[in-house]
């Protein structure tokens, strides 16, 4: 289905709701943290767009900056962070917006769900009350209307007997149910963009499958754009329309999902894909691909490929000149871009 025609018109994949105009547009986003040991560059010149109804996955390993990117979109970073660049949500600039303004936007047009639902829910209030609170805060509806809307939302996210569940406390629900409640809260105000930071990492596989189905379904049905932060390539393969691969704070490759898995160009992407045991593969069939070395912590972003020291194809050029994220092939819309001087697809460079 999705991505089966990777070369052209990637935008057509992203549901009928797509207008070709992004709801969320991130340009040259950079984040630097001040720490005791000096400044640390966590995100460097990250740009991407998300359209309505589209699921964009941001993947990478710990320390790649994917979570920092997610937090910076809604202004959730601590004061020690310096954010530059531009984040446009339907034309509204979020970088540099006041706390008051951001609070109004978060939970309304921009919603978050996190890995561990228990820490995001208040244990002393019923789930219904927590959803009602969000609705009344952002939409100023009456208590009664909010309550019936809460039941609707619980129904929407597939919670059985929602009229009863609405009066239960978070501890009375299982992990999967709690994550559904979190999704219901996030959807309460009909957000344009839902940022899901490792939403299924804490869940069992059988529960994860149901939550992923729910997210995909909601994105298509409500036209919500989803930014999915994950380390799990299986999750990406399952529900993402497009993928952004991050390494050491930079985007190293971005492509429609099928295209990325079929023809990865950056050597970090190929390494990552080769590291996962695929179905039917045995240890006796050969070793899994390893990526030697560690992710660097950078104080300044060098004019070089930050993956060069771990890359099997690196040359002097990689160490002295930063590869650009290759230009768009399609005017108006990006198809497959990668920041590599010696892409895995081009044989003469290997």
């Amino acid at each position: 289905m999705l991505g089966s025609q990777p070369q052209t018109g990637g935008g057509k994949n992203a549901a009928a709701a797509s207008t070709g105009r992004p709801v969320l547009s991130v340009r040259d986003l950079s984040v630097t943290f001040r720490t005791e040991e000096g400044s640390v560059s966590a995100v460097d010149s990250v740009s991407f767009d998300v359209e309505a109804g589209e699921v964009l996955a941001v993947v990478g390993e710990s320390g790649c900056g994917k979570s920092v990117t997610a937090m910076s979109l809604g202004g959730l970073l601590p004061r020690s962070a310096t954010v530059t660049g531009s984040v446009l949500l339907e034309g509204t600039e979020l970088v540099g917006a006041s706390d008051r303004q951001l609070r109004g936007i978060r939970g309304d047009d921009l919603a978050y769900i996190f890995q561990e639902p228990m820490t995001s829910l208040n244990p002393v209030f019923t789930v219904g009350r927590q959803i009602v609170e969000v609705l009344r805060l952002h939409q100023g509806v009456s208590a009664r209307a909010a309550k019936s809307r809460a039941v609707e939302l619980l129904t929407l996210v597939g919670i059985p007997s929602p009229a009863r569940r609405v009066d239960e406390y978070p501890h009375q629900l299982s992990g999967g149910m709690r994550q559904r409640v979190m999704i219901a809260m996030a959807l309460a105000c009909g957000p344009k963009v839902l940022i899901a930071d490792e939403p299924t990492t804490a869940l069992d596989v059988t529960v994860q499958a149901a939550i992923l189905d729910l997210l995909r379904d909601l994105g298509k049905r409500l036209g919500t754009a989803i930014v999915l932060i994950t380390h799990d390539l299986g999750v990406v393969a399952d529900i993402a329309d497009r993928v952004v691969v991050m390494y050491a704070g930079r985007i190293v490759e971005t492509a429609p999902t099928q295209e990325l898995f079929d023809a990865p160009q950056h050597h970090y992407t190929t390494g990552l894909l080769g590291a996962v045991p695929t179905a039917g593969r045995r240890a006796s069939d050969g070793r899994l691909q390893e990526i030697p070395g560690l992710v660097p912590v950078l104080t300044v972003q060098p004019d070089a490929c930050t993956f060069a020291e771990r890359c099997p194809a690196a040359s002097d050029r990689c160490r002295t000149s930063r590869p650009p994220l290759a230009p768009e092939e399609n005017p108006g819309r990006t198809v497959h871009r990668f920041a590599c001087w010696h892409p895995a697809g081009s044989e003469e460079d290997r």
Binding site: V40, L77, S80, E309, R310, P312
Partner: peptide, 19 residues
């Protein structure tokens, strides 16, 4: 904030380079 795992600039790739 998440950058706590690695603390060194990358070494030249060998089997166990970061040691």
């Amino acid at each position: 904030m998440t950058q706590t795992s690695g603390t060194t600039p990358p070494e030249t790739p060998t089997v166990e380079p970061s040691v």
